[in-house]
């Protein structure tokens, strides 16, 4: 494993991190003017991040991309729309419902709803609110990947759907409870995790490559965009219905 490409990748990961280190050091030394606490764990942590990034990229090319693509090809050959759409929904739902960032945001939202008097400020009510929110977001991501895959198969232009969705967001916002708006807008960003993105991208690009008449560049991307758009709509709807 320790061959030249690995070292090269290691160095590349180091370069990716240089800007963060530069920002942190420059601000700490010149503007805040305070000593950096715990230099030892800063250095060790940085080495961990570099190693982690390198391994991730290695595994990406070797595993996540090929898995996503080979499944796309297999489904395209099989020709069963039902199973492809079921897979798309499961992938979106399954990867989102356990997403740690989403769990944190849902809990935060429940606290806000509790203090704003939308729900009872008891922990049971908050937990059920948070769980409901998580299921809502996961359903919305499953739905998003499903629609996105259907779009690639049918060849619908992406921007109609996206712009339609944005218009939906804009129209819904004035009617949604103000407490939920910030959360709803942010929940679009937190749903897509580091493992989901490569898999879903490979799936979309693989499908667009396998299906005749589709261009991987024009049609293959866009699944992530759906996955960040639908949670906004679903979460606002959730806030309105509660």
């Amino acid at each position: 494993m320790l061959k030249t490409p690995f070292l090269k990748q290691l160095f590349g990961s180091f370069l990716d991190l240089v800007p963060i280190l530069a920002v942190v050091l420059i601000f700490q030394i010149f503007i805040i003017r305070q000593a950096i606490p715990d230099v030892g764990s800063l250095i060790a942590g940085t080495l961990f991040v570099i190693l982690g990034l390198t391994l991730f990229v290695q595994g990406l090319e070797q595993s996540l991309f090929p898995i996503g693509e080979s499944m796309a090809y297999a489904f395209a050959r099989k020709g069963s729309l039902f199973w492809l759409l079921t897979f798309a929904f499961c992938l979106g739902f399954g990867t989102t419902v356990a997403e740690p960032a989403l769990i944190a945001v849902a809990q935060e939202a429940a606290n806000i709803a509790g203090s704003a008097g939308i729900i009872e400020p008891t922990s049971a009510a908050k937990d059920s609110y948070a769980l409901g929110l998580r299921i809502t977001v996961a359903l919305s991501v499953g739905f998003a990947i499903l629609v996105g895959v259907l779009r690639i198969i049918r060849g619908w232009p992406l921007y109609y759907l996206i712009i339609g969705g944005y218009c939906g967001v804009i129209i819904m916002t004035p009617f949604a409870p103000p407490e939920i708006i910030g959360i709803a807008y942010d929940s679009g960003g937190v749903t897509t995790s580091t493992i989901t993105v490569p898999l879903v991208t490979a799936l979309g690009v693989g499908l667009a490559t396998a299906i005749k008449g589709r261009n991987p560049m024009v049609d293959g991307f866009g699944l992530i965009a759906f996955a960040s758009l639908t949670p906004m709509i679903f979460v606002m709807a959730y806030g309105m219905l509660r």
């Binding site: 963060i20 942190v24 764990s41 800063l42 250095i43 060790a44 942590g45 940085t46 080495l47 961990f48 991040v49 570099i50 190693l51 982690g52 990034l53 390198t54 391994l55 991730f56 990229v57 290695q58 595994g59 990406l60 090319e61 070797q62 595993s63 996540l64 090929p66 898995i67 580091t194 493992i195």
Partner: peptide, 24 residues
């Protein structure tokens, strides 16, 4: 090959997150 790659991804994310938690 895919299994090895998957393990790389796992290790990579774990190292990455731990490092971020420790340092940044």
């Amino acid at each position: 090959k895919m299994l090895v790659g998957f393990i790389y991804v796992l290790l990579g994310i774990a190292f990455f997150l731990k490092g971020l938690e420790m340092a940044l």
